[in-house]
């Protein structure tokens, strides 16, 4: 599904190249649950951003679903966001002016899904995540864990084939974090959604089936986890 070849990313500063990523080559198949790990400043988030097409690599090629997306025009990229990619953030990033219901509805509106279809999908998601009672609340009325549930529900609403999560449990207490990770695992196993997460926690990484260890921009280790 994802094919990265010799991805490099550096920032030129006064003639000196500061490398963030060096010669990253890897393949991620449909249905994998990959955790990217490494110390602070290793380039984990940059790698995730490149996979999510939020940043462009300085060098190297990137194929998403068999299509070269190294440099993509805005229209194409937005189509991919609408149909294939769901983002989950550490700070949840729900839109404060929208209720829970509206936050989940937003991607469907952009995807121009019909209203009855929208209603049934949202009802389904609310039901699945046990947040039906919270649907008319605003994000600041929810706990962190609940906000992240809404964030995931929003990412799932458009029925993406892949979810990109940047430290999804970074701001959560451990019980809530466990709940989220279990949910991810379930989504991966039952619905076959590809998940790529950046995490600091060895424990959270164990929920997936593969770990990419990165240090100083280089992939040091690529381990499969056998469950």
């Amino acid at each position: 599904m994802i094919q990265l070849n010799n991805i490099e990313k550096y920032y030129a500063n006064k003639g000196i190249k500061n490398y963030v990523l060096r010669l990253v080559t890897t393949t991620i198949k449909q249905g994998e649950f990959v955790s990217i790990m490494g110390p602070s400043g290793a380039g984990k988030s940059t790698l995730l951003n490149i996979i999510g097409m939020l940043e462009e690599p300085t060098y190297g090629s990137y194929e998403f679903l068999g299509e070269d997306v190294t440099s993509l025009n805005e229209r194409k990229r937005i189509e991919l966001y609408r149909n294939h990619i769901g983002f989950v953030f550490q700070a949840y990033h729900l839109i404060d002016e929208m209720t829970v219901y509206e936050n989940i509805e937003a991607p469907l509106l952009y995807k121009k899904v019909g209203s009855s279809e929208r209603a049934s999908r949202i009802a389904d998601l609310l039901d699945r995540f046990n947040i039906v009672a919270k649907k008319d609340l605003f994000p600041n009325q929810l706990s962190g864990g609940q906000q992240q549930l809404v964030g995931i529900a929003r990412a799932l609403a458009a029925q993406p084939s892949i979810i990109l999560a940047d430290e999804p449990t970074g701001n959560l207490q451990s019980a809530q974090a466990e709940e989220i990770m279990t949910l991810f695992k379930k989504l991966n196993q039952e619905d076959g959604i590809t998940i790529i997460q950046v995490t600091h926690s060895e424990k959270n990484a164990q929920y997936g089936n593969r770990i990419l260890h990165i240090a100083d921009g280089v992939v040091k280790e690529d381990v499969a986890i056998l469950s």
């Binding site: 983002f87 404060d96 458009a158």
Partner: peptide, 13 residues
């Protein structure tokens, strides 16, 4: 933040 989120949800400029 709203703008950022909307952009990754797939909203045109």
């Amino acid at each position: 933040k709203e703008v950022g989120v909307k952009k990754v949800l797939g909203v045109y400029k």
